[in-house]
């Protein structure tokens, strides 16, 4: 299935995005040289562990970074608007919520406890659109229906909602202004299995009804596999590998992707041995001069410690940052052996 993609099929195009934090320990390169595209009506998944920079990346795109951070990109286009070229006021008025909305990580705690849930969504709509209260309420009732909440729940306060209901209310709010792109940061983390299942199913249904694209950020490999059309695997502030979902799971190239797959249990494969990746993630202080995964990588070469590999293309839609990607077949076999990873200790 090869598809020719033209520029107007992209909702978001990002090239060479970096974010640095100035801290007392020095400059932290939280995100470096990240490039990706999000196509129309697709779910783009970003998977990575704590501290890999996935939340920083989207905060940079939404201009929600703290004062000690600065970010730059060679290119950051939403449709045909340069995201870094807009003034803050312009960005807030015309892009945030209108075009790109966010379901934040702790969505469960993102509702104001002293206002009724429905009123909070009405307020979000009326901040950006000149509509009457009654019209806005009608819209909120529609949105509640879309996310599977009964319309009379608009009158409730957040504390009367369960975790799953609050999450659904936040998703309703993110849909309020028909944005072209919705960013969901760990939308089901901390929810029970059955609640998570229902929310994910609802997100899938919503996507088939509306024309928005979704960026889904999570540490949960199973969630990302089920939800995404294309996936990026992030480590140490970089996209180590990105590809369409099936290709990434069936033909992974990067040693970190191989390691993550080994470490993640599947309920369909009981008794398969889980293999951890020894070591811990890099601190990212100072400029990036090596492959960030090199210290934990059983396959590293000498040059991995002094050079950071650039992304290499494999086929239409698969990019990998690894000097050993040509040896992928061999690495896939070796990575399935526990002794391979143990040898590092």
């Amino acid at each position: 299935m090869t598809k020719v993609t033209t520029a107007d099929e992209f909702v978001l195009q990002v090239r060479g995005l970096g974010v640095r934090y100035q801290t007392s320990q020095g400059t932290v390169h939280a995100v470096s040289d990240v490039s990706f595209e999000v196509r129309k009506n697709e779910v783009f998944g970003i998977a990575g562990e704590s501290g890999c920079g996935k939340s920083t990346l989207i905060r940079a795109l939404l201009r929600l970074l703290p004062d000690n951070a600065d970010s730059a990109a060679e290119l950051a286009l939403y449709r045909d608007q340069d995201l870094y070229g807009l003034s803050d006021a312009d960005f807030r008025q015309n892009i945030l919520w209108q075009e790109i909305s966010l379901v934040p990580q702790s969505a469960m705690n993102s509702l104001n406890p002293v206002y009724r849930v429905g009123d909070q969504v009405v307020e979000a709509i009326r901040t950006h659109r000149r509509v009457s209260k009654a019209e806005a309420r009608g819209r909120v009732a529609e949105l509640f229906d879309v996310v599977g909440l009964q319309a009379d729940l608009m009158q409730s306060f957040p504390h009367e909602f369960s975790g799953g209901m609050r999450q659904r209310a936040m998703i309703a709010m993110s849909l309020a202004l028909d944005p072209g792109l919705i960013i969901m940061d760990e939308p089901t983390t901390g929810l029970d299995v059955l609640v998570q299942e229902r929310i994910l199913r609802r997100i899938r249904e919503i996507r088939s009804e509306i024309s928005s694209s979704i960026i889904l950020i999570t540490h949960d490999i199973a969630v990302i596999a089920e939800m995404s059309d294309r996936i990026a695997i992030m480590y140490g502030g970089q996209f180590m590998e990105q590809a369409n979902a099936i290709d990434l799971f069936e033909n992974p190239y990067h040693p970190y992707t191989l390691g993550l797959k080994n470490a993640f249990p599947s309920i369909r494969e009981l008794g398969s041995e889980l293999i951890s990746i020894p070591g811990s993630p890099p601190t990212l202080v100072g400029p990036v001069t090596n492959c960030p995964f090199q210290p934990r990588c059983p396959f590293h070469l000498d040059r991995c410690a002094s050079e950071n590999p650039l992304p290499i293309n494999f086929g239409e839609d698969h990019q990998v940052r690894c000097f050993r990607s040509e040896d992928a077949n061999q690495l896939r076999h070796l990575a399935a052996e526990k002794s391979t990873w143990r040898s590092l200790n």
């Binding site: 799953g164 949960d220 596999a225």
Partner: peptide, 25 residues
């Protein structure tokens, strides 16, 4: 059955059936 059916599977080809369960805990 509902609980096990709801567990996400790390394989993009797997399509799970909808768990037969209604309401909230």
């Amino acid at each position: 059955r509902a609980l096990i059916g709801a567990v996400a599977v790390p394989d993009p080809r797997v399509k799970r059936p909808v768990p037969k369960i209604s309401g909230d805990i």
